[in-house]
Design a binder for these strands. Sequence first.
DNA 1: CGGCATCCGTGACGATACTG
DNA 2: CAGTATCGTCACGGATGCCG
Lengths: 208, 208
Amino acid sequence: MSPRRSYDQYCSAARALDLVGDRWTLLIVRELLAGPRRYTDLHADLPGVSTDVLASRLKDMERDGLTTRRRLPPPGAAYVYELTPRGRGLLPVLQTLGEWGQAALGDRRPTDAVRAHWFALPLLRELDGAGVVEVRLDEGQFHLHVGAEDGPVYGDGPAPVEPDARLVLDADTCAAVGRGEVRLRDAVRAGRVTVTGDGPLAKALREV
Amino acid sequence: MSPRRSYDQYCSAARALDLVGDRWTLLIVRELLAGPRRYTDLHADLPGVSTDVLASRLKDMERDGLTTRRRLPPPGAAYVYELTPRGRGLLPVLQTLGEWGQAALGDRRPTDAVRAHWFALPLLRELDGAGVVEVRLDEGQFHLHVGAEDGPVYGDGPAPVEPDARLVLDADTCAAVGRGEVRLRDAVRAGRVTVTGDGPLAKALREV
DNA sequence: CGGCATCCGTGACGATACTG
DNA sequence: CAGTATCGTCACGGATGCCG
């Protein structure tokens, strides 16, 4: 556990970087926006992070009020890490950062890891309103809690409740939306995304 | 010059962090949003950064298209660093980060450095429209280019042109606005900020 | 087996000194 | 003034070990 290295500048951006500026921290937040995760799952979805750095960051984040550690009830008793409301407040930071980073995303490099739910953040920007959206790719399935005030913002696997809309799209289309080349609405109109469901979210996506 | 350590993740937020995730990089951007700066000035306004790290970051940022290095015409020929449009695109990132960091700013610690123009980012969030605003504190003077499409977003010293509005306030008020405790408009109404000028910006601030 | 702690080699960082 | 050189320290990444 690091003794909190600080920039020691009276500036809110510098203070934010004191808390989330360390390597891996914001990517851990990205993972935890998908809901409570176990240590091993975090380690699997953050390729490259070493075990001690991950453990150290999780301790720092808990000390700083960004995450909490909770023991799951048996069976399968294990610790899970989840964001506090304060930690969830970093969603706009990750969104803004991701929006700026789109210009540098380009094509997937051979060395690049991919996880289906990494496309949740760019898709979320394309959706207004509130509701649950289930997304199916060939590579996997995830779901979005659009307009969520508390609780996870997205998650792996099928939606835990009946979704308001379902999207089916291929990886190329998803990547193009992630790169910002195509708006989700335009991809729907071009038939590259299949939208099902009766909720306002589904209707809004289908309307011209 | 580092050989570009990357997270190697096909995710736009991770790509952004590949470019600006290194220690000091975003704070250098914050400094350069104030316009072209010389190496020595950057070093003076980034207390704690070592000379070699600053030089290394500036090289990386130039290689990555965030900054350019330009030689000033004599007299006083020197190199200045300035942001490219791509680098200026990081303004929303710093603003979002700063907004989140406000909750952690608190009171000034004895070890905290302060510069007048570090209050430019929070003040900028409080201002709509477009125009030049000059701000006078006891500690120093700076100016804002509200709604600037290109060129510096703020700068040290008096405004280079006749400003549309002038604000005079004390450090406490400025810090309170920076911490998000007081809205600028409310501070004006409470008489803690003096607004002069005839432009729409000044009028908007004075109106109830 | 999940959840770390320990060890180790490498590289990044911070401070100071020095140079064109 | 604008960096480069040097050096000690610390953070990081990879592997392995321990312990419930």
